[in-house]
């Protein structure tokens, strides 16, 4: 019985064993002197000086998503700096919400490229199928997630915007220093984007 009680409490640390004993088996002396109430007070006092779990976003910290995170789309370039996309329109075909519009053109070398590459982010459901379908790995979903606006028109993004979007994070799952700007955007101020691991910081 005691064994299961101890394992059921994930936050119980090693030195809280006497507290649990007095909880279950307090005698009449403990009852008269409110040992259970004092155990509760001691516990909350310990928590008072424990590490906080608040992430101070967006004022001084920001969550860096994992590399598998499906954020804002971005278009990749090849080594020559040209757009990788061959305008096969597979992403537009597979898109369940049909929010991608691609219009191809042929350049002087005879290569296919997109003339227009529009994504309606308001209709996108962030499933990542476009990323899976792409035969040349030209489109992917990056780490950017702060693109809420006051107008749904701003959610219609074109090729130039998609090319400028940040890519995937190399090491995600950390909290990094950031600052909040007056124009309601968040700037990452960290020099090396290492940060601290959020769960490790609070886990006892």
């Amino acid at each position: 019985m005691n064994q299961t009680e101890a394992t059921n409490k994930p936050h119980a640390s090693a030195n809280s064993t006497p507290v649990e004993k007095s909880d279950s088996g307090q005698g009449w002396i403990g009852w008269v002197f409110f040992s259970d109430l004092f155990a509760g007070l001691r516990l909350t006092f310990k928590y008072m000086f424990a590490k906080h779990i608040t992430m101070q976003y967006p004022d001084i910290e920001k969550w860096q998503p994992y590399s598998r995170f499906r954020g804002h789309h971005f278009l990749l370039k090849d080594e020559q700096g040209d757009i990788k996309c061959v305008a096969c329109e597979l992403c537009a075909k597979i898109c369940p919400s049909q929010c991608i519009e691609v219009i191809p053109y042929e350049d002087e070398n005879g290569d296919r490229h997109p003339e227009v590459f529009d994504i309606d982010m308001g209709r996108c459901l962030y499933c990542g199928l476009c990323e899976d379908a792409c035969p040349v790995d030209a489109i992917a979903m990056g780490s950017h997630f702060e693109f809420s606006t006051y107008s749904s028109k701003d959610l219609l993004v074109n090729k130039a915007t998609l090319l400028a979007m940040p890519g995937k994070t190399e090491k995600g799952g950390v909290v990094i220093p950031a600052s909040f700007n007056s124009d309601e955007t968040v700037t990452v101020t960290a020099k090396n984007e290492k940060g601290y691991h959020w769960w490790d910081a609070i886990h006892r």
């Binding site: 928590y47 008072m48 906080h52 608040t54």
Partner: peptide, 14 residues
């Protein structure tokens, strides 16, 4: 502040 820290939060910070 006391409420926040007892609940492992920070309370008002801004």
């Amino acid at each position: 502040k006391v409420a926040g820290h007892i609940q492992q939060r920070l309370g008002p910070m801004r």
